[in-house]
Each structure stands twice: as structure tokens, then as C-alpha cells.
Design a protein around this nucleic acid. Structure first.
Length: 469
RNA sequence: GCCGGCGUAGCUCAGUGGUAGAGCAAUGCCUUCAUAAGGCAGUGGUCGUCAGUUCGAAUCUGACCGUCGGCACCA
């Protein structure tokens, strides 16, 4: 029998700025799911990458004194490095500047949409701010003036290609209502449904080449550049040939609309299958405030990892940040979690068990579980853990695992296995077994730590997993 | 403005009609195998405010206050 396929994607990161902790959350969550489904024996493909076109990137490149080609190479490499330091198990890293893999696919999709009659040319009327050298939206206005340049914008008309999204509006509404694409959490689905009530409008799919050179040219019209949606979303096809449809697409709440409305519209037009689940995570605030350059409170994941280690940061993101809501980062919260859960909890338990086993020369390979309560707790926890992961509840899954740790600490206190007795070896045997099971359960979340624990069980040499801060 | 979420111990949150819960932090005691780690016990809350339904409300209803999010071409 063929193995069940599992295709999971993250959004592709926009390379106008360096990676921050919020993006790390998304790739770590996706990594846990990918690793979990590999454990289930499924044929997993895990895709991530970078989105590299558009005016903002050109601007950021200029500010950095670089040409877009070099700038995007540099920033994209930073994101690739992020995947490495987080120990990500992604199978591919797609870049939208990849002409061979991505451009050709995008242009092919464009032609298909055109063939289906879903792309047409239309005059686009927009508010253009001379100061910004770009179209701005009503949101950018204060008293009818651009909030940056305090000038009234001009109404400018230009010709764009449009995608007939309106045609699929009813269809998309049905799809979301019937959970043919399951949006998690439900509150995000409701947002989309309320949006769909009024029906969707057609959306522009291109910009004049003169305004946007850094992008993929429209297949049969050199005067136009393909706009972000028709470019970036295609990465899910170009980055993993033969893998579509995705089982899970991990995204942030800011780009929900594109994934829950525009993307399904495109797929319907193309006659492709729909993604099964869209998982929408929240944002990370810093001491209750939005992370932003202007506030100067952007948390650099590279520095965090350098200071605390990969798995400590993974643990914080998965345990402290609610999966689908905003969560808060502070140094105090981070170190609190670290000391309480990782150093005193997991790390300390592993150390005391291994030390006792080593002293008595009890080989892990010969241990078996004799305590019925422990046995049923482990079985129960494994089931819970898997079902929490099916529901994207990473924090709950970790809490369940930590119950075993707590049980073991109580068990040690009660049995006092450092005192010589006739069941001393049996007790330590049970503990060794439990620690091994904890390590196995932790693999999707803290892969390196899991490995270290299993290694220590073999060598019986205790080394601190998480030195106390 | 419209729509939706939330407001429970110092902090983070669980708890959808029947005598208020967990983890962290703080306190006391016990213990020493272990990363000054572990165990036990207590402390700690008029469950946002007001009104209503009910024998009985954190839990249902309404109003109000506070807070957060959504309301398409920035991704």
C-alpha cells in the first residue's frame, strides 16, 4: 500500500527585512507538524522559502545600496540560515526569483488562467501619491492627504490585468462554509465568511512594467509585470512539483485573505484541488507591544538562539505562544519558562535518573516497565499528544508530556531509589523507561534534545541539557 | 461607525447552572539521587460593572465600561 502523503507549507517570507521572531514561530510550528507526520509514517513534503519581488524590495535594496539581485540573495540566505539554526526539516526552500523553477510555473499558470477567460485587461483607478511614488489606499490618508507626505494624492488611471475573482465568490463561500478548506481557528473562518457576504471583487493581477520592473513579466505582454498574488502563491506549486494539494498551509493572520479567498479562486479556475487545511497563527508581541522597527523592539531569533540554544527557543515558541492567538515575548517570560520547564523540569529529571542508573550500572537496554500507573500514563499521554497535534495545539501537547516529568519526580520522592532496597533497580528501570518515552514524545518539538536524551541513556553519562540561567 | 473575541488568584490561563481551579511567582516544612534541582502544605480571587432570568450564575439574557482583532491591492 502506498504511504499516505502529507504536504505542508509555510508562507514564503518577504525579503524586504531580516527575519524576526514572528516568522520563526511559523516555521517552527510547521516543522513540528512535519516531524509528527513523519513519525506517523507518512510521505511528508515540507516546503518553505522566500518571496522576493515587488516595489518594497526594490526600495529596501536601494536603501541598502544594493541592486535587487544582490539584496534578495543576501536576505534570502538569511532566511535559509534561519531554517538551519532552527533545525528545520524542510524538504525544499523555494525562491520566487528562481527563473527555472518558479518563473516558468507562474507564467504557465498565467496562461492557463487567461485561457480560461479569468484574466482580462481593465483600467485601474487608484490614488497615487507623488511623494511615495506609489499607489496608496484610503487607510494611508488623513483628512484626504497622504499621511507621510501630507499631500492630496492624484487619481491616476492605469491599465492592469484583472483576475475574475468575483466569478468564484459564491463557490468560495460554500467551500469555507462546508469546511472543504478547513480554516483554523474558527474565528478566522468567520472573518472570511463575513467578508464573503458582500461578495468578492475582481482583483488586479499585474502592474505596468514601467512601475514595477522587479518581478515576473506577464507571459504574453512585456509591458506588464505579474503582481504579488499571482506570483507568490504559485510557490506552493513550483516549490514541490507533483505534491499539490497541500494538507496544511501555515500562515500568519496578515495574509489570511490571500490564502483563504484569492488562492482558492485561482485553484478553482485552474481546476486544481483545494488545500485541506489553512492554519492561521497569531503574532508575537514584545512586552505587549507590536514588534516594529520604529519601536525598535524587534526580537532577533539569531541572537536568542546564540544565547539560549535552538531547542530552548523552539520550546518557548511552542509552549508559551498560544498557537492561534497573539502571544507575548519578554526576556523574563523566556527565562522563566527556560528555568522552570527546561532546566528544573526536563533537564533535572534526566540528570538525576541517569546519574542513579550509572551508579548502579543499570543498563537501559535491559529495563522494562513494571509500574502500571506509569505505563497507562505514558499510553494516555501519547494519545493525547497526537490528538493535540492533530488540532494544532502545540502548547497542550507539551503540557501533557510535562505531566510525565512531574509524575516521575513524585515517584522518585516516594520510592527514594538512591537508598539501597530490593526494588531499587526496578524503580530506576521504570524511570529509565519513562525518560526514553519522554525523549521519543519530544522529537517533533525538540529534536536535538530528544536525540541528546537518547544518547545519554545509552552512554549513561549525564550532561546538563539546559544549564540553569 | 459596523461585525467579532476577550475581561477569573501577582503573572499566564482552564472552567457554559449546583459549595471557585491549574501552572509560574511568593511563604513554611521535608528530602538530597539531581542543574541551589525535587516533594508536601498553606497563603492568595466581591470570577470587569450594573440589572434581569432561576431554588441557585463565573457559567444564560440585556446594558455599560475596558481591551484586542476584522472591515481587500503594504505583504
Amino acid at each position: 500500500m502506498a504511504r499516505k502523503k502529507f504536504y505542508i507549507t509555510t508562507s514564503i517570507a518577504y525579503v524586504n527585512a531580516l527575519p524576526h521572531l514572528g516568522y520563526a514561530l511559523e516555521i517552527v510550528q510547521a516543522d513540528v507538524l512535519a516531524r509528527y507526520h513523519r513519525i506517523l509514517g507518512e510521505d511528508v513534503f515540507f516546503l518553505t522559502g522566500t518571496d522576493e519581488h515587488g516595489a518594497k524590495v526594490v526600495k529596501a535594496a536601494e536603501q541598502a545600496g544594493k541592486i535587487p539581485e544582490d539584496f534578495t540573495d543576501m536576505v534570502s540566505e538569511k532566511f535559509r540560515e534561519l531554517t538551519r539554526i532552527f533545525n528545520l526539516s524542510n524538504d525544499y526552500f523555494i525562491r520566487t526569483t528562481d527563473r527555472e523553477k518558479h518563473w516558468s510555473k507562474v507564467q504557465g499558470v498565467w496562461l492557463k488562467l487567461l485561457e480560461n477567460g479569468d484574466i482580462y485587461k481593465k483600467k485601474y483607478k487608484g490614488l497615487y501619491c507623488v511623494g511615495c511614488e506609489a499607489f496608496i489606499t484610503k487607510k494611508d490618508l488623513i483628512d484626504g492627504r497622504c499621511r507621510i507626505h501630507l499631500k492630496e494624492p492624484e487619481v491616476v488611471e492605469e491599465e492592469n490585468y484583472f483576475f475574475r475573482l468575483s466569478k468564484y465568490s459564491k463557490n468560495i463561500e460554500e467551500i469555507l462554509k462546508k469546511d472543504k478548506i478547513k480554516i483554523i481557528p474558527a474565528s478566522r473562518k468567520n472573518e472570511m465568511l463575513s467578508f464573503l457576504k458582500d461578495g468578492l471583487e475582481d482583483i488586479s493581477f499585474s502592474r505596468p512594467r514601467k512601475d514595477l520592473k522587479w518581478g515576473i513579466p506577464v507571459s504574453d505582454d512585456e509591458t506588464q509585470t505579474i503582481y504579488v498574488w499571482a506570483d507568490a502563491l504559485i510557490n506552493y506549486l513550483s516549490g514541490a512539483p507533483g505534491r499539490w494539494p497541500a494538507d496544511v498551509q501555515c500562515i500568519g493572520k496578515d495574509i489570511q485573505k490571500f490564502h483563504s479567498l484569492i488562492w482558492p479562486g485561482m485553484l478553482l479556475s485552474l481546476g486544481l484541488a483545494l488545500p485541506k487545511t489553512i492554519f492561521v497563527h497569531g503574532f508575537i508581541t514584545v512586552a505587549g507591544q507590536k514588534m516594529s522597527k520604529s519601536l525598535g523592539n524587534v526580537v532577533d531569533p539569531f541572537e536568542l538562539i546564540k544565547k539560549y540554544g535552538t531547542d530552548a527557543v523552539r520550546y518557548f515558541l511552542l509552549r508559551e505562544i498560544p498557537p492561534t492567538e497573539d502571544g507575548d515575548f519578554t526576556q523574563e517570560k523566556f527565562e522563566g519558562r527556560y528555568n522552570a520547564d527546561l532546566a528544573s523540569g526536563l533537564g533535572n529529571l534526566v540528570a538525576r535518573v541517569i546519574t542513579m542508573a550509572a551508579k548502579l550500572e543499570i543498563k537501559n537496554s535491559k529495563t522494562k516497565i513494571t509500574n502500571k500507573n506509569l505505563k497507562s500514563l505514558i499510553n494516555k499521554t501519547q494519545k493525547e499528544c497526537y490528538s493535540f497535534l492533530d488540532g494544532f495545539e502545540f502548547n497542550e501537547a507539551l503540557m501533557a508530556i510535562w505531566e510525565i516529568i512531574s509524575w516521575c519526580d513524585k515517584y522518585i520522592e516516594k520510592e527514594r531509589p538512591w537508598v539501597e532496597s530490593k526494588n531499587q533497580k526496578e524503580v530506576i528501570g521504570n524511570l529509565l523507561f519513562a525518560v526514553g518515552e519522554i525523549a521519543k514524545l519530544l522529537e517533533p518539538f525538540l529534536p536535538k534534545t530528544s536525540e541528546k536524551i537518547l544518547e545519554q541513556l545509552k552512554t549513561q553519562k549525564s550532561q546538563p541539557l539546559f544549564p540553569r540561567i
